[in-house]
């Protein structure tokens, strides 16, 4: 048996934030070739880019499971940028140390987080592109609804966007935009009006 700290054993036996999210804003899957471990991350991100809900699944040893649990605890509430700076030393320290042979288990979390952030940015960029396309292409329905008014993009998030509207029927424009986004992204994207 490996010599594990009390805290590591606690995170192994009672993992925090384990499981999956129904509609995550981003998701990642990583596997370690070295020891065959694997991990997934589901994250929900708020409008300030802060990590809200975060869930992990791990196939691996006690140190791998505890490292994933620790990572989610450290990452919660941090902005994505801040979370990317979490090092595996920080995870090891958080868990009260671990045998040197097990350090590689803590590396997987960082990799999963980087990929999840990459996924978030990718999803956000594609949502932005779709919205820009819609505004540029101006489907007949939208042209009619906007009339002499105007629409501009204020905020983009993979699952919700903020737009500034003036001189238009807000609820009509919102429903048109939501329908178009649904068609193009295949997912539900909420449209909100910022003032």
């Amino acid at each position: 048996m490996w010599k594990y700290s009390k805290k590591l054993m606690d995170h192994f036996m009672n993992p925090r934030n384990s499981g999956q999210l129904l509609n995550p804003d981003c998701h990642s899957e990583v596997g370690s070739l070295q020891c065959g471990d694997a991990m997934t991350l589901d994250i929900q991100v708020d409008d300030e880019d802060r990590i809200g809900e975060i869930r992990f699944m791990t196939f691996g040893c006690a140190a791998a499971i505890a490292s994933a649990s620790a990572l989610t605890e450290i990452a919660k509430g941090k902005t994505l940028e801040e979370a990317l700076a979490i090092s595996n030393d920080q995870i090891v320290e958080f868990l009260g140390g671990m045998p040197e042979e097990k350090y590689h288990c803590s590396v997987m979390g960082h990799e999963a987080l980087s990929l999840a952030v990459e996924d978030f940015r990718h999803r956000r960029d594609s949502t932005a592109e779709y919205l820009e396309d819609i505004l540029r292409e101006k489907p007949d329905e939208l042209t009619a609804a906007v009339g002499d008014g105007s629409i501009s993009i204020e905020h983009i998030h993979p699952s919700r966007v903020g737009v500034r509207l003036s001189g238009v029927d807000e609820s009509l424009v919102i429903s048109i935009l939501e329908k178009e986004l649904q068609q193009r992204t295949g997912k539900t994207v909420k449209v909100r009006v910022t003032r």
Binding site: W2, F12, G36
Partner: peptide, 13 residues
């Protein structure tokens, strides 16, 4: 299948 052996061994121990 689905669970890593060392994790099971640790809990059995």
């Amino acid at each position: 299948r689905g669970v890593e052996s060392e994790a099971v061994m640790t809990l059995l121990d």
